[in-house]
Design a protein around this nucleic acid. Structure first.
Length: 416
RNA sequence: GCGGAAUUGGUGAAGUGGUUAACACGCCGGAUUGUGGCUCCGGUAUGCAUGAGUUCGAUCCUCAUAUUUCGCCCCA
């Protein structure tokens, strides 16, 4: 038997239902917030991810799906969504003659070569938004609250947003240097991973779970001492906005994010149990670094698989059950002709209808109708049809009536 | 990239180095010749992830591979 590749999954059953529910909710949100849908290629040139995500990051050094196509081009399956969107914004010059922010969203599969575990796959789905052409803290607040509100509205009401500020690009760099020179003398007091992080991602040491309580870490330089007055003011403004929007957030100075392109505000959406559902940040120099004009940007991404996982624990089984309006029962050939015709009439009137599609015995049809949770049964009988009548059984009260053939649709519409 | 656990029908699973692989749910058929959901009776894995090896003989022991799962790392 040929099996699915490691880390992939078939979306079906309850998961598929929840996934559809999430997608509908996303569509509604995006209409109300006035964001436009964008779809970029599943694969891009390898260089794009090296220049955006960062050469030294784990994502690029050991997690990408890289290959050469038949034209000898270096290609990479996208490991995240921002790089492609930014590339597209530059390539299509979406920034021309614009005073208002450019607001985009995507909801697509991403690819990372990692060991699968709970809520993590090699092919996974991210919903994300990106806003360009605004450096206003007001937009920061809109973007952060959008993600929060979406999660809450999906049913994840214990979400907390952990926010932090990295300052502008140069203060981020100054702080990173300060951290390196502080940690170097103490290198032997750090865990094995952190000793590597000094070279690869010094900021990430702050978020280390092993060294969390060590003296070295507690006495490390604070990021707040390195960020500019402007950044601080802007961060305070953001907090005021979030307070006013009733967003459940906490400032957490250890949130630093793993991608290189972030500056100013960064945040993560966390649940009570410490599971991160997504995160994002501002990236004011990314567009320029990729060869575009100065164009500030901000965005986040949510992991759909993790949301499905959490939602599955919360949504009641009742809500996920099949519930159809009408099941039409037929046995003889003549009855089947009627069954198909009535099913079409009902379906075109938005009545959820199912028919005997497998030549089942009447007994089996009753059982099927029950497993489908049919509200009404239409039981076709030759003797009725000759008189122009149709038997309808309310499957909850068990009451049976005979309805004139011509009024069947109206009768159902009036009773469901 | 590192470590642990697992893999038996449609499902939940028991089990053993040696003729027919429990039990339950589900499904199919019948009792009930077109009104069911209860009950009763009957049927339902030529195969125990895949490939090699040990053995007279392997689903069971050994090794490898694949996948699943739980961690680490990292992240969504």
């Amino acid at each position: 038997m040929i099996t699915k590749p490691k880390g992939t999954y078939d979306l079906l059953g309850v998961d598929a239902k929840i996934s559809n529910y999430i997608n509908h909710e996303i569509e509604d949100f995006m209409i109300n917030y006035n964001y436009e849908y964008i779809r970029t290629p599943v694969f891009e040139s390898t260089e794009l991810f090296h220049r955006t995500v960062g050469d030294g990051t784990d994502i690029v050094t050991k997690e990408t799906y890289d290959f050469k196509d038949r034209g000898d081009r270096n290609i990479t399956l996208r490991p995240e969504g921002t790089a492609g969107v930014v590339r597209s914004v530059i390539e299509n010059k979406l920034y021309g003659n614009k005073n208002d922010p450019i607001k985009l969203y995507y909801n697509e599969t991403m690819y990372r070569y990692e060991r699968p575990q709970s809520g993590r796959f090699r092919e996974f789905t991210q919903f994300g938004i990106e806003v360009f052409n605004s450096d206003d803290a007001l937009i920061d607040a809109e973007v952060i609250s959008l993600g929060y509100n979406l999660l809450v509205s999906l049913g994840l009401d214990d979400v907390v947003v952990k926010i932090n500020t990295l300052g502008d690009a140069s203060s981020r760099e100054n702080y990173t240097n300060a951290l390196v020179s502080y940690f170097k003398p103490h290198i032997n007091d750090l865990c094995e991973d952190c000793q590597k992080r000094i070279k690869t991602n010094p900021l990430r040491i702050l978020d280390c779970k092993v060294d969390k309580n060590s003296e070295v870490l507690k006495n490390a330089p604070k990021i707040s001492d390195y960020i500019s007055k402007e950044s601080k003011e802007r961060f305070n403004k953001l907090k005021t906005y979030l307070d006013n929007l009733d967003i459940n957030y906490e400032v957490d100075e250890n949130i630093v994010r793993g991608l290189d392109y972030y500056d100013e505000c960064v945040w993560e959406y966390m649940l009570d149990d410490g599971i991160a559902l997504g995160g994002g940040g501002r990236y004011n120099s990314l567009v320029e670094n990729l060869g575009g004009p100065y164009l500030p940007g901000i965005g986040f991404a949510l992991g759909i698989e993790r949301i499905i996982l959490k939602l599955k624990e919360k949504i009641s089984d009742k809500k996920l059950e099949n519930m159809i309006d009408v099941y039409i029962m037929s046995v003889s050939d003549e009855e089947k002709i009627y069954a198909l015709k009535i099913s079409q009439d009902l379906r075109l009137n938005n009545v959820i209808t199912e028919i005997n599609g497998n030549n089942l015995s009447l007994k089996s049809q009753f059982k099927v109708a029950d497993t489908l949770n049919a509200k009404f049964l239409i039981i076709l009988k030759n003797e009725d049809l000759q008189k122009g009548l149709i038997t309808v059984k309310d499957n909850i009260t068990k009451e049976e009536v005979k309805v004139d053939e011509s009024e069947i649709v109206d009768y159902i519409l009036g009773n469901i």
